[in-house]
Design a protein around this nucleic acid. Structure first.
Lengths: 129, 129
DNA sequence: TGTATCGTACGAAAAACATCGTACCTTTAG
DNA sequence: CTAAAGGTACGATGTTTTTCGTACGATACA
């Protein structure tokens, strides 16, 4: 049963695009210079590469930008949460046929998910009632 | 706190590769013909395309194959669980800075995660003690 | 005022992925 | 024996994503 709804969905961000989004989510609206510097804390990347990516992101409508200054300021169009929910949804559908509980099981079985995390999750569920 | 461990990790499968893996996971070791037929239940794809993908997968060491017959049989090297755990791990790290509980919250907040799913998850956690 | 610095624009090359056509070998049925 | 059916190999091509060089306009300041 496919519900009819406005195809609001923006195109799925690519890997490189996600890197940029994450900087913007963490630090808020930023210039290319700022984002590029942040990226370079993790890996080497040329300024113009980042610039181009952000321009593409803007073309796609994933970012909007304030051009009133010479140093353009880029801003994510969708909130962090919304985008992540979308990505998560896709992930669950692809790998777990949409079953969130199956994903959970994996998460809980993973040694890398610490006891503390598990406690946190339980508390969360309790609070949900 | 990053634990030191052998970097066992195989290269991340691409989208097309994942499709193939999923068929193999669901139906067990298979021929190219079989996999291709399954894929074609969902979308049109040429036999040789699938063949090529599976050959690449084998080159990468993600699949191994039994060549003793003319119809080669392809088998995933890693178990479904292990690969999924790896992908999930990467996903959590990338989008949620490794916080499983944060991911959970999103999952639980998502209307698409049904009440039944949530019940399932709770039962799961209870059983964990 | 001129030159170094910092910005954007944009085409093009490089790299990663995906698809397919063609060659050619085996098996099978008549 | 031979033709059709079905298999693998693999290069070529198409597409998308990523990276970068170069051109050129603004700004800053010696």
């Amino acid at each position: 049963m496919k519900s009819i709804q406005p195809e609001n969905n923006l195109p799925e961000p690519t890997k490189a695009e996600l890197e940029i989004l994450q900087v913007l989510w963490e630090f808020g609206p930023s210039t290319v210079r700022f984002v590029n510097d942040k990226l370079n804390e993790q890996r080497e990347v040329n300024y113009t590469s980042t610039l181009k990516q952000m321009q593409i992101l803007a073309e796609k409508g994933i970012l909007k930008r304030d051009e009133s200054q010479m140093k353009h300021i880029y801003i994510p169009v969708e909130a962090e949460e919304k985008t992540k929910v979308q990505l998560l949804d896709r992930f669950v559908n692809t790998l777990y046929k949409g079953s969130a509980s199956q994903l959970m099981m994996q998460l809980l079985g993973n040694e890398k998910t610490s006891k503390k995390e598990i406690e946190e999750i339980k508390r969360l569920l309790d609070r949900m009632d």
